[in-house]
Design a protein around this nucleic acid. Sequence first.
DNA 1: CTTAAAGTTGAAAACGATTTCATTTAAGGA
DNA 2: TCCTTAAATGAAATCGTTTTCAACTTTAAG
Lengths: 339, 339
Amino acid sequence: MPTIEDVAKLAGLSRTTVSRVINNHPYVSIEKKQLVVEAMNQLGYVPNSAARSLRNQRTGMIAVLIPRITNPFFSQMIESMEIVASEKGYQLIVCQTRYSKSKELSYLNLLKTKQVDGVILASIQNDWKTVETYLQYGPIILCNENDVQATAPVVHANQMYGGYIAARHLIEQGHRKIAYCCRSLESKVASKREMGFLKALQEEGLTFLESYAFRNTASIEDGRSVFHRIREMADKPTAIFTGGDEVAAGIISEAKRFGWRIPEDLAVIGFDNQAIAQLMNPTITTVHQPVEQMASIALQTLVEKLYSKNYHSREEHILSLELVIRESTIKSKLAKNIG
Amino acid sequence: MPTIEDVAKLAGLSRTTVSRVINNHPYVSIEKKQLVVEAMNQLGYVPNSAARSLRNQRTGMIAVLIPRITNPFFSQMIESMEIVASEKGYQLIVCQTRYSKSKELSYLNLLKTKQVDGVILASIQNDWKTVETYLQYGPIILCNENDVQATAPVVHANQMYGGYIAARHLIEQGHRKIAYCCRSLESKVASKREMGFLKALQEEGLTFLESYAFRNTASIEDGRSVFHRIREMADKPTAIFTGGDEVAAGIISEAKRFGWRIPEDLAVIGFDNQAIAQLMNPTITTVHQPVEQMASIALQTLVEKLYSKNYHSREEHILSLELVIRESTIKSKLAKNIG
DNA sequence: CTTAAAGTTGAAAACGATTTCATTTAAGGA
DNA sequence: TCCTTAAATGAAATCGTTTTCAACTTTAAG
């Protein structure tokens, strides 16, 4: 494996000059530059990035912390981030925390050990005070999360509004007994969403039964089991707000297997507006999240902070959510062709 | 940011001793060890990984090249790999090539520049001769791909068999006019699959019409457009082999929108056995791929090669595929409850 | 023809770890 | 007591870059 020294020797020049050529510095004559380029090609030289990182104090790597990559919401997010990162000359390291506090911290250590230049937290289980201690080692951006205490850039959608419009929609369809699912127990996202949900109920003077709450539901399988729990209830809800389209799909598919009609027997509303929401039969009413936009803003903000080095102040980027009405909540046949 | 030097000074010892403590080397007295540990804690010291990489010639990073992370097949693969990698003390760098030869090469350069210790190719667009030149810089494993020329470990499923059993199943259902979709134009995976598909047809004396071939189809959207192309055909196929469950789902959902009955008007068989195959109505007959197993073997093999340093010889791990029969190909109502 | 400024080059000092090679001290055996 | 061996420690070299600084050459202006 040739080093800069080998190139220098072959070209009959010093390491300095070779380095200047590599980094496009001025004050190198055309002839020498030519010599260096030839020597590099002849040897198949490529700069060793560990040495560069050590010297430049920069790795060109960004860590993105997500719960699970198999969740389409997050894989879409990663996809969008990767495109922007690649343009800006950064590599992405995907870290799956599986909602574990300790895994989250162990991945944050990548920042401490200088294996990455910055971190995007698209999932946060530890409280901000804990995370904040890592801020001294490099920029951290919150994406799709919003801890009010966060003293760093935050990119998120208005989850409270999302919960509100979803509940509002169900209420407008005449529902009074509405169940509620959420992904994680401690997530701020979920609690904001729940606030909006409850607000809509409250406005109509409806009280929420804790027995209608299904916490910690995230997957299709969880959706299936939620359906069964509902099926065994004496006083069943007539509609359900699921924290994500997967859960909604799980409920719907299982409900249909048991002969239930959707939305007549149970109206279901999803979240995220993923591909599956348009594919299911019935298609799923859901809340669209601007993932690509969120991802792209988060990454751009991070790169910007990487240059400006000033990333200890709060800075909010709020995006808007929007209701997408499909068949799983609308009884009329009109919705059939919205797809 | 404290360095090993700072720790040494505070502990009143040399860098050597501190390094010994960090790396658990013998010949360090308990008292000194204690001193070092205290000093490290007091300063919040963490070894700089760029310096370690430079000295140790090892980064602890693995690059995984895939076409797109939003394809559930690949996100499942990444998820499984990440779990094993994390256990073995490696980080994963996700590289999306989008089926581009040049992107693929630019990511392979991570190996040359020593930003990663090894590479897993879960997508290969360049021919092996080109890829092989990178083998001098570190181990490369082919995963879900199999270039017969490859002089490196290869982990893949028997795609030819997969194509064969799928076609065979459709033929057994009485189909004679069977259309065929494949993901990529040049992929070896696709061509192997096609060979199996054609073999089944041939065995029954059926000839394949090139007009029934839809190449370069990968997404749900592609599936929708395939349906429309079929709809406009004078002589329509009665069944279709899609290269993936997404395409199948796209076809089915669009077909139903236009009042077609599945499988009566068109039998559809998917590939990969993804979540969506069980959720669609009708549920999708498909070919199950052992992704987790493939991912896990590929990663383990890579890590092993990283130690043994002997990775220039071909070594095949072949896994088996299996048909999962559901409703999209079976006319009887019996399949309804297989789910 | 002088002199200041700008262009061109290289030696050597970082960057922050690990490892080799001495050196010192302690322990054990004769 | 002396000698051998093992245990404990550190000085300095090394990994492969980039950057500072000094030195030397041109060029341009006066």
